[in-house]
Amino acid sequence: MKNYLSFVADAFVNTLKGLWVTLEVMCLPVITVQYPTEKLVPYPRFRGMLAYDAKVCIACGMCVRACPSRCIALAKAAPVGDTMRHGVPARIEWYTIDYGRCNFCGLCEESCPTKPVKALWHSLDYEAVFSTREEMTRRWERGDTLWGTARGADGQFAAVADQIHIQNVPVRPFDRHSP
């Protein structure tokens, strides 16, 4: 009998303690971020959508070899006079990334050897949306300007407000003869 009563009392007390915990949390501020009115800026190392700078790229193909999902393809080009940057001609003919296959691992960014800024990097964009599968492959051509900014010459990030958005990069034209 005593066992029973102590069990009932114990159960009662534990129930009330649990209720107190939820009451306490109810009176504290919420932790919700109301997307899309409020957006969080990811931390600098965040691996968002890939971004590419055609003027810096030297078309070495390290990223193509490093990618585990084989989502990058490129073609080299002979230097042409009017696409110079820092006195170095652009070496790339075209460069495509298939965002459907990218698994955001960062191996391509690590393998890119260009200095002082990398030609391929993970931006902070986490809002890319595609409606068809063809749209997922984006292509940069020789002479395309860069949208947004990456890390500056000092290795620090430019203003996050100017980060690149993938929607600004043109879709690869669906053409059997171009990869």
Binding site: Y43, R45, G106, H122
Partner: peptide, 14 residues
């Protein structure tokens, strides 16, 4: 968030 600061990934880190 701590992992994102550290390596850039939130679920799959490498």
């Amino acid at each position: 968030d701590l992992f994102e600061m550290l390596c850039g990934g939130r679920l799959l880190y490498s």
